[in-house]
Design a binder for these strands. Structure first.
Length: 333
DNA sequence: AAAAACTACAACCGCGCAGAT
DNA sequence: TATCTGCGCGGTTGTAGTTTT
């Protein structure tokens, strides 16, 4: 009958994670991969519920995460996607590799909302704010927020002009469609989209195509097995070859010890023999953990300075993560 | 210098869905 | 088929850090 409960919650620790706990979690996942979250805490020696472990891993410790503030480009993406999808943060996050739904949600609530309001845009409807809507609609709408596109669909349905677009269609980010929007329904959105499109051209090397991005979903990423983790070991002038990742910093008030991952039972993290044999061209070779990324993670975990600064680089300088389905086929993951 | 107010974000909570039994 | 759990999602809370008074 059914399954065992997630956790008995008795004697389980709550609140901020400590460096020690992070160490255990990382260590366990790197060694064993992600197994079922329910069993993980026990196996990893953690007094946490599986849910908490999953959250900690997916939102903070996962190696393919970008850290730091969202770039302007990412912000625009979020705004545009929010106009289409509403508060479906995980869907929005799936379009922004390396970003988590939690991160985007927080950023939306703390930064973007204010920004839009300042610009005179209703962050809920993405329409220009009138005094009336600002005062009387903002709060109630928040509860019953409908994505702009859905509102449009309803309008369209109402007008019997065309068949409704299936909701799932929303999940595809289609810049072309943006252009076809009726101006009065997405003034800001289309403006943003145009800017995004401009940037898109610049960003093409990162996001090979919108199609590619649409297909990428962090949630769909295969489980990373330890023997599948690729870490460059080739000498680099800019980054040490060591894969040592040291003590983490976070709100969990980590120690400044730089020996964090020295203690980890890291699997042999070496170049895969296949690494240079992939069909990626060398200039755009991708790895889960490339030099820059390892450096960034080192910085993050070492706590050397403001972690936000570590990633305060243009998006095209972010470490790349596997995001095209072909990659899975070549044993990189 | 200290207290209050504000900000940012990690973490928690509760719910719903999908799948296991 | 019914029951129950695992997991993921979105909303909310707690708290550390920062700024203002």
């Amino acid at each position: 009958m059914g399954r065992q409960p997630c956790c008995d919650k008795v004697g389980l620790k709550k609140g901020p994670w400590t460096a020690e706990e992070d160490k255990k979690l990382i260590n366990f996942i790197l060694t064993n991969g992600q197994c079922c979250w329910r069993a993980l805490p026990k196996l990893a020696g953690l007094l946490r519920c599986g849910k908490s472990c999953r959250l900690r891993w997916t939102n903070y410790l996962r190696p393919d995460l970008k850290r730091g503030l969202l770039s302007e480009y990412e912000e625009k993406m979020v705004i545009d996607l929010h106009a289409q999808l509403g508060n479906r943060w995980s869907k929005i996050a799936s379009h922004l590799p390396g970003r988590t739904d939690n991160e985007i949600k927080n950023h939306w609530n703390t930064h973007i909302k204010k920004k839009l309001k300042k610009m005179g845009i209703d962050p809920v409807t993405h329409k220009p704010l009138s005094n009336k809507t600002e005062e009387t609609q903002a709060q109630p709408d928040e509860q019953t927020h409908q994505p702009l596109q859905e509102q449009q669909q309803q309008q369209q349905q109402h007008q019997h002009q065309q068949q409704p677009i299936p909701v799932e269609k929303d999940l595809k980010f289609e810049p072309e469609k943006e252009q076809n929007r009726e101006p009065e329904t997405s003034v800001e959105s289309s403006t943003i989209t145009e800017e995004v499109k401009e940037e898109d051209q610049i960003m093409t090397p990162l996001f090979d195509s919108w199609e590619l991005m649409n297909e990428f979903c962090t949630d769909e990423a295969p489980i990373i097995e330890p023997n599948e983790i690729l870490v460059p070991s080739a000498p680099s002038s800019t980054s040490p070859t060591t894969t040592t990742i040291s003590s983490s910093t976070s709100t969990s008030s980590y120690s400044n010890s730089s020996n964090f991952l020295e203690d980890l039972l890291l699997p042999d993290l070496e170049w895969s023999d296949d690494y240079n044999d992939t069909n990626f061209d060398n200039n755009s070779s991708m790895a889960l953990w490339d030099d820059d990324f390892i450096g960034s993670w080192n910085s993050l975990i070492n706590g050397d300075g403001d972690r936000k600064q570590v990633f305060d680089a243009p998006i095209n300088q972010y470490p790349r993560v596997i995001m095209d389905s072909d990659s899975w086929d070549y044993g990189l993951f």
